[in-house]
């Protein structure tokens, strides 16, 4: 069993990563980080570069947790990738970050967090950014 963290390089994403790390250490499990770029993009701001990923992996290493990075590209919905990877690694827990969206932003893009909470058939831990 593994703890799955859906990660984007923002404060919320870091909060989710830390929470996932805590949870994995407590359960004695490892972490799979999903960092999925949008298919067809040349540059995706949600993607982490090698150095950044290395730093996070080392942080986990110090706590005895190994991290596997998954960078499968997603099509119209990142939730599909989260579900697929969760099935793939038989995740015991999915950790996501929550952030406030303006009503307009929600109309345009919808809420990924909401769809993960409702549609992924695993326990989900939702984390807020540190105030």
């Amino acid at each position: 069993m593994t703890v799955l963290v859906s990660y984007v390089p923002t404060p919320v994403g870091d909060a989710a990563f830390d929470a996932g790390l805590d949870e994995a250490a407590r359960r004695g499990e490892n972490v799979v980080v999903v960092n999925s770029p949008h298919g067809g993009a040349t540059v995706d701001a949600d993607l982490v570069d090698e150095a950044h990923a290395q730093r996070l992996s080392e942080r986990a290493e110090q706590r005895g947790v190994t991290v596997e990075w998954r960078r499968d590209a997603h099509g119209d919905d990142v939730v599909d990738v989260v579900q697929r990877v969760a099935d793939d690694v038989d995740a015991s827990l999915v950790v996501i970050g929550l952030r406030r969206r303006s009503p307009v932003g929600k109309l345009l893009l919808g809420s990924v967090a909401q769809r993960i909470l409702l549609h992924v058939d695993r326990p989900v831990l939702a984390v807020k950014a540190p105030a």
Binding site: D76, L107, G110
Partner: peptide, 14 residues
């Protein structure tokens, strides 16, 4: 957008 680019329904419509 929707079928060739596989964007979301929402983004494609708008």
């Amino acid at each position: 957008l929707r079928f060739l680019g596989k964007e979301s329904w929402r983004l494609s419509t708008i």
